[in-house]
């Protein structure tokens, strides 16, 4: 191997795989907590993408890192509100099964 650094594509492929695993978990989980965990996985994949681009393409201004910090902030807020919604759902339905949350089903 006579490369001088890790190629950008390696980071992008890792983040693509992580994002698709997150989507699969989001679609297939029965437990509502696991759905929230899948969303966190997808947000992390996006963050890896932002950080890789900021390091390889914008390595002087590093605006991608600032964006990643904002994404982390929003993810923290999302986790707090999501788990609060989950708790009040659990209090009303006494289950965390995603199939039973069908009040808005057509």
């Amino acid at each position: 191997m006579n490369l001088e650094s890790i190629p950008l594509q390696a980071f992008l492929i890792v983040s693509s795989v992580l994002f698709c695993i997150g989507i699969w978990g989001l679609l297939n989980s029965r437990n509502a907590v696991r759905v929230l965990m899948s969303i966190e996985l997808m947000l992390n994949a996006v963050n890896i993408n932002l950080m890789a681009f900021s390091s390889y393409i914008d390595n002087n201004l590093i605006q991608g890192q600032v964006f990643a910090i904002f994404v982390i902030t929003v993810a923290a807020a999302e986790a707090a509100v999501g788990l609060a919604i989950l708790l009040s759902l659990y209090r009303n339905r006494v289950t965390v099964d995603m199939e039973s949350f069908n009040l808005l089903k057509w």
Binding site: V33, L36, M37, E40, N44, I72, T73, A75, A76, A79, A80, L83, L86, L87, Y90, V94, T95, V96
Partner: peptide, 20 residues
Amino acid sequence: LVYVGAVNVLIIFAIMLVNK
């Protein structure tokens, strides 16, 4: 700090509260 220290702990607490 944020993910491991806060979000993950929050998720574990939620699991403990709804783990039936």
